[in-house]
Simulated scan of single mutants.
Amino acid sequence: MNAYGEFVAAIADIPATRLLGRAPEGMNSSGDSQQQDWSKRIKAMQTLELGPCLDRADIYLVQSALGKAEPSASYAFAPLDIETDKERAERFAKQMEAADKLAGLNAMPEQAFNRGIQSLMIAEGYLPELEAALSEIPDDERYGIVADPSVDDPTEGGGPDSTGAGGSGSETEPPVRVAANDATPRPLYVYRKLLNAGELVDWAQGLGVKTNPADQLHVTVLYSKQPVDPMAMGEGWSSDPDGGLVIKAGGPRALERFGEGALVLQFASWSLQSRHNEMVQAGASHDWPDYLPHVTISYEAPADLDLEAIKPYAGELRFGPEIFEPLDPDWKSKIAEA
């Protein structure tokens, strides 16, 4: 019978200690490893088998229970093990140690980091009533969004630069962000100017393409027709002291046509994609199905240009800091190609 029980446990993938209700065998054996294997098995079944079934059924069950659809509703399976106070304290200490090291890297905007830490504390239930207390605090205070006290005059030092498509202003003004003390919601345009645009222009003109002026080449980060508070967008993602962003040479590149005559160079950038998604989650809009980082080379590309026969520009792309501007719907008419 014992041999048969071992056989059944192996076939069922259930630890013998649990299936047969017997004590662990072997010297210094506590049965913990078998219990961990069983928990992993249950977790896999929840994720791969039960979860997908619930996702289909919940669409109707939630609506039936609440009387309306609730797209934000979610669920979580109950823990498979009961954590001891010691284990919980040790896990908290390790998480806070990791968070402290992460904060020292300055790898993300302070507001995003604060939001993540608060979400972790709430999800883990470390501090009772924390979520209720934080919900009563304005977002700017809750996430540490503080106006720059050094900026007294929104017009001091010049206004936003207009050489990027979608913005407004004077070409002689230096590229600066919207003043920190001006948080009026507005349709917003955010972009980065291509600093080594001359290299891309030389490459495109070598193909016989009439290009946009070099000082107007840029990558769009956000094109939001929805009025948003510029301060709610947080800080740009950059490891450079000057706020710039470098796309290294090589990697995925593609030449595509957008609309009628627009020739663009597409490239992959996790930083730009993540930054764009962060802004959309903060309330900005995006009118296209996907965000594709690209530089528009020309709006008058020859119709007979065979893009499949051209190897896309693969050199380094060096972009400047983020520039925030009110959205200008008539930006395209102001571009003069060279």
Rank of each mutant, 00 (worst) to 15 (best):
P79R: 14
E49G: 04
D242T: 00
D153I: 07
T47K: 14
L217P: 00
M121D: 03
L20N: 05
V176S: 10
P154H: 05
G320L: 02
A303R: 13
A303P: 03
P154R: 10
A183V: 12
Y299G: 06
W38M: 09
I59F: 06
P329K: 10
N196R: 11
G261Q: 12
G26A: 12
R142Y: 09
A44K: 11
S333Y: 05
G169R: 07
G125E: 13
D202W: 05
L130A: 03
P138F: 11
A78Y: 11
A268W: 09
I323G: 00
G104Q: 11
R56K: 06
S150K: 04
S285I: 06
D148R: 00
I14D: 03
L263D: 11
N212F: 04
Q36V: 15
A132K: 14
Q226N: 15
Q226W: 07
A23Y: 03
G116R: 10
K225N: 13
V280I: 15
R177K: 11
P128Q: 08
L61W: 13
G243P: 01
E129D: 12
D100E: 12
V209S: 05
L195M: 15
Q95N: 08
G261T: 11
A132Q: 14
E260I: 05
Y313F: 15
Q266V: 13
N106S: 14
M45R: 10
D290F: 12
R91Y: 13
R56V: 15
A336C: 05
D182P: 01
G125H: 13
M108D: 06
V246A: 01
D215H: 12
P213I: 03
S238Q: 01
A338L: 11
I59C: 07
I323Q: 00
G198H: 03
G250R: 04
G125L: 12
A232S: 15
H286Q: 07
Q34C: 01
A12F: 09
D140K: 02
D215A: 08
N181P: 02
E308I: 04
G206R: 07
W288L: 12
I82G: 03
G21M: 08
N277Y: 00
P109L: 11
N212L: 08
M279A: 10
P230H: 08
D330C: 05
D330M: 15
V178I: 14
V190H: 02
L305Q: 00
P149V: 02
A89K: 05
A9F: 06
G51S: 06
I11F: 09
A133I: 07
A133E: 12
A147C: 01
A268M: 06
D81S: 06
S274T: 06
R115N: 11
V8P: 01
A23L: 14
Q266E: 15
G67S: 12
S239F: 13
E6I: 08
E156F: 15
I117L: 13
P149F: 01
V228D: 01
I297R: 03
S274V: 04
S74V: 04
G159S: 04
I59Y: 04
F7P: 00
A165V: 02
D242N: 12
V280H: 00
Y299P: 00
D140I: 02
K101P: 05
G206W: 10
L317T: 00
I145P: 00
S72W: 02
R142A: 04
I335C: 01
M279V: 04
G320M: 04
